[in-house]
Design a protein around this nucleic acid. Structure first.
Length: 320
DNA sequence: ACCTGTCAAGTCTGG
DNA sequence: CCAGACTTGACAGGT
């Protein structure tokens, strides 16, 4: 079984490399001249693309082939009152450069629209803005020449609105409204408060889409369900995919702030998960969601090296 | 150079 | 019923 590790958006071992530089809407409106406002957005986007290139190159030197791009590459892009502009055409050469790096190194690139995108909301305006975000994310992945086969968008089921079953149904109904190309990118993840692994697996199976297991969320929100009873079925939602199943891994910050992410990954808990995963005999990919980002990935690899249970494959993958 | 409050967005909670 | 928490990195404005 081969397990590959990746991380989210921002490496902490390169200086000044944020791919998420931005301007707040309030400050945007303080700029009196439309041209200067536009210049500001352009220069931030340019910096974000350049930094994304630096990050991908850095990842390659560390054998990291799993990476989640920032959802904030283009500042204020989904804001209603900000002028729409051709954020692809203006920087085509950067997107092409990124596409070439991804292609020639066979990188797995994903994206995760943030918590404000809710597909099961009863509020139509929320649906519209969520669809808008999905369309934007799809455009970015397309510009990176990452197809729906390789580039997924991770979504949560959403709110409960006092009735989980009804809200699950609404997610399924609203899913039909998503353009087909974007539908084939969407994968669903269990969350830490409302939709547990059973709920999420039900949605994934109903829609015929893959499920991402978040091990930490399951620990926070499990209603007594045992991972060992569900993991094979969760991984099996990826059977028709080219990509391997993916899981999210993080550790609780403290007993009190158990939902918050700790700096690093608890190796004992990680080992325990691997024991369960071993019974599925399937390769899988791990998205590390630790505060210390890729530093936590390096530390986990160090722990894995010291353990006798594993064989190191390269800087960011190992064999169980 | 460093610290603090603020920020575009949605939902849920606690008062 | 509404303000604040949740969560996140980054900016703006202060010292």
């Amino acid at each position: 079984m081969i397990v590959r590790l990746g991380y989210v958006a921002l490496p902490l071992d390169i200086d000044d490399c944020s791919p998420s530089r931005t301007i707040t809407y309030t400050n945007y409106t303080k700029i009196p001249n439309e041209d200067i406002r536009q210049d500001k957005i352009l220069s931030l986007t340019k910096a974000n693309l350049e930094n994304t290139i630096r990050i991908l190159k850095h990842n390659i030197t560390k054998d990291i082939s799993i990476y989640r791009i920032t959802s904030k590459l283009v500042p204020l892009v989904t804001h209603d009152n900000v002028t729409r502009w051709n954020y692809i055409g203006k920087f085509k050469h950067y997107y092409d450069q990124i596409a070439n790096i991804i292609e020639s190194n066979n990188l797995r690139i994903s994206s995760h629209p943030d918590i404000f995108n809710v597909l099961n909301s009863p509020n139509e305006n929320v649906i519209y803005s969520s669809l808008d975000t999905l369309i934007y994310q799809n455009i970015i992945l397309d510009a990176f020449r990452v197809t729906p086969v390789n580039g997924k968008l991770v979504m949560h089921i959403g709110g409960s609105y006092g009735n989980k079953n009804k809200s699950i149904k609404r997610f399924i109904t609203n899913f039909a409204r998503i353009p087909d190309r974007i539908k084939s990118r969407i994968i669903v993840e269990n969350d830490d408060k409302i939709y547990n692994i059973k709920d999420t697996l039900y949605v994934a199976k109903s829609l015929g889409i893959p499920m991402v297991l978040d091990v930490h969320h399951h620990w926070c929100n499990n209603d007594g369900l045992r991972l060992s009873d569900f993991l094979f079925d969760i991984f099996s939602t990826w059977n028709n995919e080219v990509l391997s199943p993916k899981i999210h891994v993080s550790s609780p910050k403290s007993d009190k702030e158990f939902r918050s992410h700790a700096d690093y990954i608890n190796f004992e808990s990680f080992n325990n998960f691997i024991k369960i995963a071993k019974t599925t005999d399937m390769d899988f990919d791990v998205m590390i969601e630790a505060k210390k980002k890729n530093l936590a990935l390096y530390k986990l690899m160090e722990d894995i090296k010291k353990s006798t249970n594993y064989t190191i494959k390269n800087g960011a993958s190992f064999i169980v």
